[in-house]
Simulated assay, not measured.
Amino acid sequence: MRHITLKGLSLLKQFEGYSRTVYLCPAGYPTVGFGHVVKPGEAFEAGINAGQAEDLLRQDVIMAERAVLRLIDVPLTNGQFDALVSFTYNLGVTAFQRSTLRCKVNHGEHAQVPEQLLRWVWAKGYRSRGLVLRREAEANRYCSIS
């Protein structure tokens, strides 16, 4: 199975941010580490270190990798794969599956992908500066050669 590159993992870590302790993400889910949504039965009262957080991220990112592999029918560069995995990790498989972004990729309309990524910058009805920065970084990664 194909995996996100170290550059892609760094992009994810940069925008997810690291939290040693559990917090509520903007969507209201208890979260820890690099965007790990706490599942029933998991306990992080003592917090986690950066190594543990990275281990959770690597486990969690598999869901996004599998979704991109399943939903995209055209060959992808490492940069394109990384960007789509980051997007899917952030917004979920269903959002990616239903998106015009996915259709553009599958039709080989790669030049239109950055514009499609930048449509996904809204949170609770407001344009989020953090999401704008993330989507710009994903667009740059998508267009990169390596």
Rank of each mutant, 00 (worst) to 15 (best):
I4F: 02
T5Y: 08
T5F: 09
K7P: 10
K7T: 14
G8V: 00
G8H: 00
G8P: 01
L9P: 03
L9A: 07
L11W: 00
L12M: 10
Q14N: 13
Q14P: 01
Y18F: 15
Y18S: 02
R20A: 15
R20W: 10
T21G: 09
Y23H: 00
C25D: 02
C25G: 04
P26K: 06
P26A: 06
A27E: 06
G28R: 04
G28S: 04
P30C: 00
P30Q: 03
T31F: 02
V32L: 11
G33V: 00
F34W: 01
G35I: 04
G35P: 13
G35F: 01
H36A: 01
H36D: 05
V38S: 04
K39M: 01
E42P: 12
F44Y: 12
E45Y: 14
A46D: 08
I48T: 07
I48F: 01
N49P: 05
Q52S: 11
Q52A: 10
A53E: 03
E54N: 06
R58W: 13
Q59W: 11
D60H: 00
V61Y: 10
V61C: 08
I62G: 08
A64K: 10
A64C: 09
E65G: 06
R66K: 13
A67K: 07
A67I: 09
A67S: 10
V68S: 07
V68I: 05
L69C: 11
L69H: 06
L69N: 11
R70L: 15
I72E: 04
I72W: 04
D73Q: 13
D73A: 13
D73P: 06
L76I: 14
N78M: 11
N78A: 14
G79W: 05
A83S: 08
A83V: 11
F87C: 01
T88M: 06
N90F: 01
N90R: 04
N90L: 03
G92P: 12
V93R: 10
V93D: 07
V93W: 06
V93P: 04
V93L: 07
V93S: 03
Q97A: 15
R98M: 11
S99I: 07
S99G: 11
S99T: 05
S99F: 05
T100A: 11
T100L: 14
C103Y: 13
K104W: 11
G108H: 05
H110V: 08
H110R: 05
Q112M: 10
P114T: 09
P114F: 03
P114G: 04
P114D: 06
Q116E: 15
Q116H: 01
W122P: 00
A123N: 14
A123I: 12
K124P: 04
G125C: 08
G125N: 06
G125R: 02
R127I: 14
R129S: 13
R129Q: 13
R134Q: 03
R135I: 06
R135Q: 13
R135G: 11
E136K: 14
E136N: 10
A137H: 02
E138Q: 12
A139Q: 07
A139L: 09
Y142H: 02
C143H: 12
S146H: 14
